[in-house]
Design a protein around this nucleic acid. Structure first.
Lengths: 149, 149
DNA sequence: GGATACGTAACAGATTCGGTTACAAATGTA
DNA sequence: TACATTTGTAACCGAATCTGTTACGTATCC
């Protein structure tokens, strides 16, 4: 799996700490261990999903578009990962079968995988960015400036 | 996502229909709409996981290694998809942070994603290959030879 | 006007994936 | 034994994806 979900959550958790204060892509990239442009690309996606908004120019940066308690990991997952139409998709069907076995098999598989995906979504929906930030604060040593810049 | 999970389930569901009768990679490939070598590669993985076994030579093919009721979709998922160490992994940590924020963030994210993955595993564990075959039989028109070759 | 910082296009290197060819090894059958 | 069949596996190709990077236009603040 790619790193976008994790990095996006990282970014949002960071922003939750500095809410009201714009954070530059350079700072976010440094914290997430990646390149500023990678952050800006991700932020672009998050902005389209309505999770953050950005300010251009000097002193600009990115902020949360709504309280961290109102952003679930499912929101993040949908924004950065679920652009593809079908998460579990059979590559191809069998055009030779008289009974269209390939199509039926695909439908059946989707019916079987569906509940698994739904279970994952439910679990992700139960966790907010605020939860992540909270958990993060507990794990960080006291007085550590890491999470707040 | 790649097609291995779906194709592997396709293969196993097919074998559940013809249990006791070896099925060649060519037949399986035709049913799944892929290439025989792709099937053999997948079967190789499934064999390592103890889900199937194969017979070489003329009249050979692949059979289920145990009853279809004893093979869950979680078994399949683990066999073909979870070869990588970590499903959700943050690409890199932040070596510059005084507090090792990157590492803490990664631990936190894993703690948050874990339940989601576990929920998906639980859902997959609840479905057996026999269930898939059963569902498939219900969806196929009566007397259709598709699923049994 | 200049510094700052975003938005985005473009490109490169690495990796993954599926398809294909090729060939050795094993196995059943005449 | 000779041959056909089928697996097991290596090797390679083309496509796609992902991450990192450079470059440059644009917006904003001082």
């Amino acid at each position: 799996m790619n790193t976008r979900f994790a990095v996006a959550t990282h970014i949002l958790a960071y922003l939750a700490h500095t809410q009201g204060q714009p954070v530059s892509s350079e700072v976010l990239a440094s914290s997430a261990g990646t390149h500023p442009v990678v952050v800006r690309r991700l932020v672009s996606t998050l902005r389209e999903a309505g999770l953050v908004h950005s300010q251009r120019g000097a002193g600009g940066g990115t902020l949360l578009a709504r309280p961290a308690t109102d952003i679930s990991l499912l929101d993040v997952f949908r924004a950065v990962q679920e652009t593809e139409p079908d998460l579990f998709q059979l590559g191809s069907t069998n055009p030779n079968s008289h009974c269209d076995l390939g199509r039926v098999m695909q439908e059946t598989l989707e019916g079987m995988f569906g509940p698994a995906i739904e279970a994952m979504r439910t679990a992700l929906a139960a966790v907010s960015v605020a939860h992540v930030t909270q958990e993060l604060a507990q794990r960080l040593p006291k007085g550590c400036p890491g999470a707040t810049g």
